[in-house]
């Protein structure tokens, strides 16, 4: 219950941390409300994975991570770079010109893989977003670190996740505007801008951490 209330109380902050990734992505995909809900679910599953990883780390290391500033900076920087890469995939991905096998043959590397496994990008984004250190997550982290058991730590993170997830649901209604064709272009452009921001912030954190 403590984790759920914590999530509920801080959900808007979590939303502002995840919205720069999620909103351009959903707009760039240009899907309807139902498909957006599915994408959101994949994002949230990824985010849950991120929280669980964080919860495990909290349980395993106690307060060790909070003290290891340089290592934490590098890790966070890498998370940012990862998010930037996924957003760039969204920005550069073009609408498949034809359906079927031919559509899969266009594009190379990451873009092609993203097309083959469309769920990989939202899950990956969710995972990285879950690993991003935001103030509410640090609160949950502090609570989990003080827990004596693995189960207690994981439960706190799970309930925290549920509490914050409620605030994400309205984002899927962006799909109601999918007939406004320019929104897809706007989503892709903004994904590129946010990606540049995360790339810059990530590189700064990694370089700062390594020094």
């Amino acid at each position: 219950m403590q984790g759920f209330l914590l999530g509920l109380a801080n959900g808007t902050t979590c939303l502002t941390f995840c919205a720069p990734v999620l909103v351009p992505y959903l707009l760039g995909e240009g899907k309807g409300v139902r498909k957006n809900l599915l994408t959101l679910l994949l994002f949230l599953i990824g985010r849950l994975g991120g929280y669980m990883l964080f919860g495990l780390a909290a349980w395993a290391t106690g307060s060790l991570l909070l003290g290891a500033t340089a290592g934490q900076g590098v890790l966070l920087g890498l998370v940012y770079v990862g998010l930037a890469a996924l957003l760039l995939v969204t920005a550069l991905r073009r609408r498949a010109p034809v359906t079927g096998a031919c559509a899969l043959q266009t594009g190379t590397g990451a873009l092609q893989r993203a097309r083959r496994w469309p769920g990989a990008v939202p899950v990956g984004m969710g995972l990285l977003a879950g690993l991003k250190v935001c103030p509410p997550l640090l609160l949950a982290f502090a609570g989990a670190a003080s827990s004596n058991s693995l189960w207690g730590s994981l439960t706190l993170f799970l309930t925290f996740f549920l509490g914050t997830s409620i605030y994400f649901l309205p984002i899927s209604f962006l799909g109601a505007f999918r007939r406004v064709a320019p929104l897809r272009t706007i989503g892709q452009f903004s994904a590129a801008i946010v990606a540049l921001y995360y790339l810059y912030a990530g590189v700064l954190l990694v370089v700062g951490g390594l020094q």
Binding site: A19, P20, V23, P24, T185, G187, F189, S190, Y197
Partner: peptide, 29 residues
Amino acid sequence: RRWIYLPFAVLLAIVLLSALTYGPVYCEW
């Protein structure tokens, strides 16, 4: 013609990032 949508994308990005960072991202960058 697609570039005419860039201002809206910049608007969306700076609104989201400013809410995230609590700073005027456009002025800073």
